[in-house]
Amino acid sequence: MSSVWLVPVVFASAFILTALLRRYALSKSLIDIPNDRSSHTIPTPRGGGVAIVVTFLAALCLLFAGELIPTGLFVSVMGAGAVVAIIGFMDDHGHIAARWRLLGHFVAAAWALYWLGGLPPIHALGLVFDLGWAGASLAAVFLVWMLNLYNFMDGIDGIAGVEGISVCLGACVLYALGARDGPILPALLLASSLAGFLMWNFPFARIFMGDAGSGFLGMILGIFSLQAAWLSSDLLWGILILLGVFIVDATFTLLRRLFHGEKIYEAHRSHAYQVASRRCGKHWPVTMGVGLINLLWLLPIAISVTQCNLDGVIGIVLAYTPLVILASKCQAGRVEAA
């Protein structure tokens, strides 16, 4: 079964479905109204990320029918992705208590890990770490953090889509260079669905992704990371490096807000990318900057880990250190002056 035709079909389907979702959001008054915690100034429809969910999962079903994707990865993505997307869709339409959202997120993570087989032994610094149940628990926390940090980082035009496309295509490069039997097709199709949505979200947003799309995207990229670990620890480190901009900004901001006694569940606009967008006065330079960091800094380091025997932990430190400095320079996590 040839699958090349799926790439343009998924792109066109996501583009068209996003347009339909925009009309639906306008008709149902599903509008994000700017407030003092927003990075936007114009009321904008939300929920366009459903197009990403529907087109990607439909394409995944075709891959599975053609025996082009492992059963474990297929069931993991379909189950966990659907649960996260449904929770996000319901939250986009009406608030769901944080405790129930979190419970649903951990259920989705547990489902994903069951079908992936948990967390394999990890090679780092010349040692092998087989963490067993502790590793599985750590992996569940990682998946839940990935989907929530993606929600946090989806705050300016195009940034979530550009990050997702960069990571997916970067992962394809890592698999191709190493001739690995990895999920190149799923990653390529996720990038294609994101590109179709991005036509409506960048350089200025005519519709937002919403929690259904951003949470789904974070969960799927987390699953791709853990699935890569079963192929090679180097691939896990490589994909974590590719995710560096979002992981560092979200984690640095959260930890600083915790340190200063802020309520971390409250909306804010103190992430480094939000501060940078205010300083620029525009969103698109920051979004393009993220893409360039991924291409020119993080991808070469990820390739060095997977192809040049650079230790994964050293690669993470090398990749993340300038990002931490950048977040500090932007004063990420600081309370904005009134």
Rank of each mutant, 00 (worst) to 15 (best):
V10Y: 07
F11G: 01
S13M: 11
I16G: 07
T18D: 04
A19D: 05
L20H: 08
L21S: 04
P34T: 12
D36G: 07
D36Q: 15
R37N: 12
H40I: 09
T41N: 13
P45F: 06
I52W: 06
L57D: 06
L57V: 10
L73K: 01
S76E: 05
G79V: 08
A85K: 04
W100M: 10
A109E: 01
W111K: 08
Y114H: 14
G117N: 12
L119F: 07
L119M: 15
P121L: 12
A124D: 04
F129N: 11
D130T: 10
L131S: 08
G135Y: 05
L138D: 12
A140M: 15
V141A: 14
V144C: 06
M146Q: 12
M153Y: 07
M153I: 08
A160W: 03
G161F: 01
G164R: 02
S166P: 05
S166T: 09
V173I: 12
G178R: 13
G182H: 04
G182R: 05
L185D: 04
L185M: 15
L189E: 02
M199Q: 09
W200H: 15
N201A: 11
F202V: 08
F204P: 03
A205W: 03
I207M: 06
G215Q: 06
F216H: 02
G218E: 04
I220G: 00
L221D: 02
I223L: 07
S232M: 08
F246P: 00
V248H: 01
V248I: 15
L255E: 07
L255W: 09
L258R: 12
E262F: 11
K263D: 13
A267R: 10
A272R: 08
R278H: 14
R278W: 10
H283V: 05
W284A: 08
M288W: 11
M288L: 15
L295S: 11
L296Y: 09
L299G: 00
P300A: 12
P300M: 13
I303Y: 00
I314Q: 11
I314E: 04
I316V: 15
I316K: 01
L318Q: 07
A319I: 03
K329T: 12
G333W: 01
E336N: 14
